[in-house]
Design a protein around this nucleic acid. Sequence first.
DNA 1: TGAGATCTATCAACT
DNA 2: ATAGATCTCA
Length: 825
Amino acid sequence: MFPIDLLDAAPEGSPHPSSSPLLAHLNPEQLAAVTLPAGHALILAGAGSGKTRVLTTRIAWLLQTGQATPGSILAVTFTNKAAKEMLARLSAMLPYNVRGMWIGTFHGLCNRLLRAHHQAARLPQAFQILDTQDQLSAIKRLCKQFNVDDERFPPKQLMYFIAGCKEEGMRPGDVVASDPDTRKKVEIYQLYEEQCQREGVVDFGELMLRSFELLRDDEHLRHHYQRRFQHILVDEFQDTNKLQYQWLKQLAGNEVGGRYVSGSSVIAVGDDDQSIYAFRGARVGNMADFIREFDVRQQIKLEQNYRSYSNILDCANALISHNSNRLGKNLRTAQGPGEPVRIYEAPSDLAEASWMVDEIKQLVKNDGYARQEIAVLYRSNAQSRAIESALFNAAIPYRVYGGLRFFERAEIKHALAYLRLLENPHDDTSFLRVVNFPPRGIGARTIEVLQDTARSSGTSLSDAVTAVGGAAGTKLQGFVAKIDVLREQTQGKTLREIIETVEEESGLLEHYRNEKEGADRIENLQELVTAAESFVTQEGFGRDAIALPLDEQQNARPGQDLTQSPASQGLDPDAPLLDEPLRPPAGTAAAMVNADTGETLSPLAAFLTHAALEAGDNQAQAGQDAVQLMTVHASKGLEFDAVFIGGMEEGLFPHENAMMDRGGLEEERRLAYVAITRARKRLYLSHSQTRMLHGQTRYNVKSRFFDELPEEALKWITPRQGGFGTFAPHSGAYGAYGSRASGQLGSNSGWAGKPDVFASPPVPPRKAEPSHGLKAGMNVFHNKFGEGKVLALEGTGDDARAQVSFGRHGTKWLALSIAKLTIVE
DNA sequence: TGAGATCTATCAACT
DNA sequence: ATAGATCTCA
């Protein structure tokens, strides 16, 4: 039925069966989306509507029908997880290698572009990528050097400022600075840029911005990629920021009077209800702009949900209907109501965790759920600790995504810093990280002198050591010599050997062997070797780093001249060119070759890139049948048979910090919507009366989101136990909890014949109603802290406490028998 | 001057 | 709870 075998990239590829099963089982909307004629289109895809399936099937269909070659396809996602998922599905669908396609995250593809054209982008080929930690420490270093008042300009705030500018596509010169503070920030931004350029490092924002400018300013190169990528597919389009949208426009090509009427076909897939990244510059408005600027004629809504039972979906629909400014979409399912959504109230976070564990045991044992089909979601990473320890104690395998990830651990960053110095001695951030770690007698004073020397001579720290005299200078030179020796020693070695050598010779292993808490760290350092090993052997090796050689005769021949294209405008042509990067020795195994330029990148450089772009999971044992733990953000795009959402409490979910932002509550609600729609069969929501946070106990009121769910889809499984209900009527600025909940609680004792789940630890009895007359949401006045707002209340009589937010003085818990609070009207 | 001890601020999400 | 910053002693 389809012409096939047009894929020269897979000469041995076995012909696909002509009666393609590809399009079978698609519903009419999905089919329409998959088989859209070339052109721009927007697909509004609700949660669980088969979005990834549509995307991957379209790619497969384009290839199978000969409308596209692998090299003409660019598919971009936000997370590594989504990119991997897409690749995995495509490999399963297609009989040939999928590597010729550019499929990856925005940052991954930008990295690929910049590596391929590093000269045009004025970067060393082995440029290093700063993660958030590195970026912050680079900014701190800069501030110290230029005596920036870190009271007035906290480094973190500067980092947000810089990242924000880049997300908007603004260089320092583009920022309109009307007040002195902004002018100062712009000045620091400028200095920061110079520092990064000098050191040959780029941050996440720079990856995007630099590759955008590369395309914008280098006509030759832009045309090459515009011709090449005839089919551009964008996943999670609602999460694109301004710069990413502009980046896409550069690739789409053929702008005529502000309209992108022809050129490549851009298919944007998104869901405004799942926009959860406004905090980092995502612009839902890009969807409307896309429709206008690309003159989109084809809009398809995917509203049929194949994932969840209707009780779950009803909850999601009801919740999200409380948001305004929606494009309008309602999920429907052909499945029955399924089981009710269970809601549990725990007395403490530990009790919440142990309830989850009990419930998970039941699910696995009695109901035959696979552990990997059970997920525990939470709003913030700090919540995972309690759940982890409960799972650990119950000997249930689990896997945590996010949190302190593998490549972010201190010992790993130390090892990576040594490795980075091998690749690029001018990486001052890495230099400073390990110049005195393990301690080798180089103190703050010496480093200060070195930094002064480097600054006045305009060189990197590494180059400046020779200019420092005395004993301090000798020590410094000793350190640099050590790095140089390491670089010598590791020449021609495999990645594994390089890392092993560095870990041993740097003294890191020795240092941790002598440290009493060092065993875990040593284990992690060994794990780094393993990670490198699997990076080398793993399928898709270097995908993010650089393309493997591939047959691209279907594409416009890139040609060597691309690398000789004139230096991009917009960058200072007089900026000193950095040294040519180290080339891997000839014959080194697995040196990677850039398909577009023929240049090679050493396995070590590729691995370092991998480490920066994919922070890695923090649990080593992957692929096991393990319960999945992650933040709600990390869960987007995934689905599970059973989902637990813990910590549904005011201040946590919705998060108190989010409430400060404009539109913050709505984003929190979308976040809850995302969380709910992850569940296929069972959904559990829970909240806890108390929670350890920052080392102290906090008392939380249940989330307002509970009040926005349809009662008939819920089942409250908390035993009464005489506890919270007594003060519940006073806990709510949000209304109906008390009356409704007490009725629910009473009518729901004993479901599903599992009385043991009710065995929650006893709650301290409370006798009387609180008499202070305070309610959450009231404004109060405190003699010392001034005016504040009551966030939550707890306890009665002498034990009564109120959580009050005092703005400048922060949020405090106050014992009402002691603190004098007056109600402000 | 450097190393260890103590104090303090932080703690939302992702690349 | 934890890391980072500051302080004190050798």
